[in-house]
């Protein structure tokens, strides 16, 4: 139940060394867009050396490899064999790419690593349920910038251009019982814009959000941790549920039924995982 997924470039030693400092629940070491062609080998070597040597107290580590049709894809996968990482972020994910990914491991006689499927094309948006249902996929992540480019439109502050994809992703992930990770806010130093974008992520119902800068992590973590008021409310609902033994009752004039009770349980679970004070 990670809240924040922080992208860090694989070719910057200082960022790798400090991956546990930024307080992201998970990091995504990037071998793809953030890495120039001539430093991709460096990124693979540094990442492998760092994770091999420093494996204690690290957050969940994913690696964004290059897309399956890219020449560097196999080099990326080879560099990751045997490493203690949580999974792979697969760019330009669609059903074809997922198949290629699985076959790559099968040819080597290896068990494929779990995936976060990065959805960044219009076709993938329309195939999201099939992608979410694919056995290796543990989460969907929206790639807002590539999708916006593919739609030949401009990025807006209101993010209207990705609203449909956001809604579809939350539905597809929920239907498949996996996590949905919203696209990162693309501006490094604009706190108000960041807060507004995070509020949209929460309102859409995403389970987490990606971050392109460590300074975004704190705000994301706070937004995806239930507030004390939400925890208090959930506790009251569950206390009443326990007292009455019923899944249908009134509290403060509001009708409480099974979905609300389940949501309250989720709030308590999230709060417990992420350190919100509980009695």
């Amino acid at each position: 139940m990670a809240r924040s997924y922080l992208f860090i470039p694989g070719d910057v030693p200082r960022m790798l060394q400090n991956m546990d400092v930024f307080e992201a629940d998970a990091v995504i070491v990037d071998f793809e867009d953030a890495i120039a062609t001539h430093t991709k080998d460096e990124a693979r070597d540094l990442t492998r050396a760092f994770i091999t040597k420093h494996h204690e107290n690290l957050p969940d580590i994913y690696v964004r490899v290059n897309a399956v049709e890219h020449d560097d894809f196999m080099r990326d996968i080879d560099a990751l064999f045997g490493l203690d990482i949580t999974g792979i972020v697969l760019p330009k994910a669609d059903t074809h790419a997922l198949k290629r990914y699985r076959e790559t491991f099968e040819k080597k006689g290896e068990h494929p690593l779990h995936l976060i499927a990065l959805i960044e094309t219009p076709r993938a948006c329309l195939d999201m349920l099939a992608i979410a249902d694919y056995p290796l996929v543990r989460a969907l992540m929206l790639g807002g910038e590539d999708l916006t480019s593919a739609l030949a439109t401009a990025r807006t502050n209101a993010r209207t251009e990705i609203a449909t994809a956001r809604g579809l992703m939350v539905l597809a992930a929920a239907a498949a019982g996996i996590d949905s990770i919203d696209t990162p806010y693309p501006v490094v130093d604009h706190p108000e814009g960041l807060q507004a974008d995070i509020a949209q992520s929460v309102a859409f119902g995403f389970s987490a959000k990606a971050c392109i800068h460590p300074n975004h992590v704190d705000a994301v973590n706070r937004a995806f941790t239930p507030s004390q008021a939400a925890v208090d409310e959930a506790r009251r609902i569950l206390a009443m549920h326990e007292k009455t033994g019923s899944t249908r009752f009134s509290l403060d004039g509001n009708m409480i039924d099974k979905p609300i009770i389940e949501r309250a349980k989720n709030v308590i679970k999230q709060a417990g995982i992420h350190g919100r004070d509980l009695p």
Binding site: V21, D189, H213, P214
Partner: peptide, 11 residues
Amino acid sequence: TRDPIGVKIAR
């Protein structure tokens, strides 16, 4: 500072 290490220390 906008350096993330510096920001974390300040926080």
